[in-house]
Design a binder for these strands. Sequence first.
DNA 1: TGACCTTGCTAAATCCATTTAGCTACGGTC
DNA 2: GACCGTAGCTAAATGGATTTAGCAAGGTCA
Lengths: 360, 360
Amino acid sequence: MKRGARQGGAVSTKVAGKPAVTIYEIAKHVGVSPAAVSSTLANRHVERRLAADTVKRIREAAAALGYVPNMAGRRLRAHKSATRQFDLAIVTSFEAPLPLVGQVLRALQNAVDIQTDENTRYAVSIEMFHAGRLKEKPALLDANRYHGVIITNTLPNDDAFLGEARLPYPVVVLGRRNPRYCCVLEAPDFVGRRSAEVLLDARCQRLAILHGRQLTHTTSDRLAAFTRVVRERTGEDPVVIVSSGLQPHDGAAAVEAYFAKGGKLDGLFAVNDSLAAGAYQAIKVSGRRIPDDIAVVGVGDYELAEFLDPPLTTVAGANDAMVAEAIPMLFRLLRGESDVPTEVLVVPPIFLRASTQRGK
Amino acid sequence: MKRGARQGGAVSTKVAGKPAVTIYEIAKHVGVSPAAVSSTLANRHVERRLAADTVKRIREAAAALGYVPNMAGRRLRAHKSATRQFDLAIVTSFEAPLPLVGQVLRALQNAVDIQTDENTRYAVSIEMFHAGRLKEKPALLDANRYHGVIITNTLPNDDAFLGEARLPYPVVVLGRRNPRYCCVLEAPDFVGRRSAEVLLDARCQRLAILHGRQLTHTTSDRLAAFTRVVRERTGEDPVVIVSSGLQPHDGAAAVEAYFAKGGKLDGLFAVNDSLAAGAYQAIKVSGRRIPDDIAVVGVGDYELAEFLDPPLTTVAGANDAMVAEAIPMLFRLLRGESDVPTEVLVVPPIFLRASTQRGK
DNA sequence: TGACCTTGCTAAATCCATTTAGCTACGGTC
DNA sequence: GACCGTAGCTAAATGGATTTAGCAAGGTCA
């Protein structure tokens, strides 16, 4: 009765390397024609007048042999020649903040819904990889899965893989520059620079930046620009607080640890909103007030930013805008247009909220 | 230069009803064999020693005719007969809270990663529908797309459609009961009852429930049980506050409107965490304190619940547990096991946090 | 002149499932 | 005995792309 006891077992129990079971094999096994097997497995046995006993034997053989239908074969046959089917995918890392992925997914689904008609159909998939290990997804190199993909949340490792690999279908890369593909990214420096400016304008003196251990192209750009501007304007480098992950509790733990060892700060830039939410908690628990003791800037990738207490000032959150650029771009590539720009820069909006509004 | 001007245009410019362009058509057009076209389009023209001029003509014809490769054909041919490919999908509504979808997606991807080996491959798709309009996705009835799906976030309309339609592949339904399929759901009544109890134990007297206009099976169960328990224990019905959507700002607007017309309450149950976050804001803006003036219970479907101020008490959030049940179930169905339970009830955990901890 | 190579291309088999047209055997009717 | 109907099944074509084996024409070398 142990629930989930079979969780780890593979679906198929066949021995490695054995050719997959097809309806022909089942047919041979039972002693009927493939037509009979097909009819049975498609639940057409009644109208095709197959004997009940035959149906039963076919079903048993299919189960016994571990038959797995080949969808490619089915679809090829079922294909109406007047419809074009496009298979699209969003390729993203597991570790990515969900809202980002969700935005892309919803926007793509919307675009696809609009374009779907009786002659054109779309399917949208998600391909997830573990951050930095995109190359362990060799299936991406197959030309037989997708008509086009949007790739996002890659780490430098992954970018390198993409640069060498040259995927055999249209690709739009979101959030980083890659010379081999069409890219949509934040205007470089903007987020880091403006975050620094917002905090400095609030007359913060000891600035800190909070980021996760793994830096994507985007977050490392934010880090660099922030650091540069702070150095220029204050003569000092900002404190760098590194969290082990990107979840709120990671941010909370990192800031708490910083306080614990006597660290000081009065202005914090968190490279994404989950971390900012965690930082909020650590700051409050330590008895400090936001924004009077510590002003905080986040990144607008979380719809809840506005509902934190106090509402979080966000710079960036250009994701909406990036997605809005990326999706038409993908369709243009699919259409085979030749004048698709290879790089689009998006300037993120800024929302000034209470977390940086300090009484003079 | 207007960007996105072509956003609405279909990818293919062909006239409706024309059969799709195949490599045979291109071949005829150019005056070569399909083999030459295939080689060119697969970028194998060098090793196949095609003349540069031929390649160029083929490429031009393909572009001119608007060729869209048929992935079913490609995959059928490319198929290694020793590998079994499983195509799985998560079917969910657009309107669903993203974290729920993300949980299912990640858990499924994890399961799939474990099971992937050289003989077994998986693809995970997302199919989105507009809440209540699942029947507008007739492709779900095709037997040629998925080996199995997990369906979640349906409205009663959608459940009715599913009940009649009988999808031709294994299905696990998440969060509601449907006699035709295997279902995993919250233990009925539990969430509504426990939320009421938590608030009543905090000595709240005027209870309210906040939910979106559209009730899913799950949320209407929560509403009903909450109402019943409140009525039993206080002799009065709880106030029902209805928000137009499920986003935080919808919750904020609804609660604000309730206050505006003089409404009172000292205990609030929000049927999901986004709404609770919005309610927090409206409550604070109105000058009331949480939990002393108003205690709040949410639903643990948002990782940020713990990081709201004050941390939000959550009942439910059984999603993790439901997903943990549903996924092995799907694999058992795929394997053709016959003793798969048709209904699994999950008892959600409860996290008591500051939002219901009232100084006596 | 013949053996051999290279270039540039094609014919045909193949992947798997589905469906249409049609066959056989049997029973019943007139 | 001719004819029809039906139950129960099969042969073969089909969908689109890829690849292997191999052909034809022209050149090189001895």
